[in-house]
Amino acid sequence: MTEADNKAVVHALIESWNRDDLAGITRLWAPEMVHHGRDGTLPAAEVAAEMGRFMRAFTGVHMEVHSMVAEGDLVNTRMTVHFSHTGDYLGVPATGRRLRCGLMGQLRIVDGLVVEHWGIADGLHLLEQLGVLPESFLSATA
């Protein structure tokens, strides 16, 4: 597959997120897809379960893409994700607030399917918007 084909897969993932379509997202994953995060490596089933919890708590997702760069089988993204807090999340009842979160990711795509994902989200800013962290805590980070 070409780099343009790989970028098209990522665009399809983003469109599925924007439609609140978890099944559409997971159709673009290889069965052996894994996510690499700060707590280690998670298999596809655990990633899908966490995404489902997120989608129940936050609706109206819109991923605003700032940049997307492809090289070989890797695609890198830098985005802002916008969503509304409409359900319980981490014990915080729905606030109805419209929130945003910076997100950077890298996906490895083989034969049109995601086989690996690495992602970094601005979780501190999200927690501040939910009222869990004081705004002053954000001054310690960029």
Rank of each mutant, 00 (worst) to 15 (best):
D20L: 11
I14L: 08
R19V: 05
H11Q: 15
S16P: 02
W29K: 00
W17P: 00
D20Y: 09
V9H: 02
G37L: 09
L28Y: 02
T41I: 15
A4Y: 09
S16M: 04
P43I: 06
H36G: 11
S16T: 05
T26C: 03
E15P: 04
G37S: 14
I14D: 03
G40L: 07
A4W: 07
W29I: 00
D20G: 13
R38G: 15
K7L: 10
S16I: 02
V34H: 11
P43F: 06
D21I: 07
L28I: 03
T26G: 01
L13T: 09
V9A: 04
D39K: 12
T2I: 03
D20C: 09
H36M: 13
G24Q: 05
D39N: 15
R38H: 12
G37H: 11
T41C: 06
N18I: 00
H11S: 15
I25N: 10
A4F: 09
E32V: 00
R38W: 12
T26W: 01
I25E: 10
G24C: 05
A8S: 14
H35C: 13
L28A: 05
R27W: 02
E3K: 08
A4N: 11
L13Y: 10
I14K: 01
A30K: 02
A30R: 01
E3N: 06
D39L: 13
R27K: 09
S16E: 06
E15K: 10
M33W: 00
A23P: 07
G24T: 04
R19N: 09
D20T: 12
L22C: 01
W29F: 15
H11R: 15
V34G: 11
L13N: 10
A23F: 08
I25D: 10
D5Y: 09
L13I: 14
K7V: 04
A12M: 08
P43Q: 11
I14V: 09
T41S: 10
V10A: 07
D21A: 05
W17H: 07
S16D: 09
D20F: 10
H35Y: 15
P43W: 04
T26H: 00
R38L: 13
A30S: 12
D21G: 04
M33N: 04
E32Q: 06
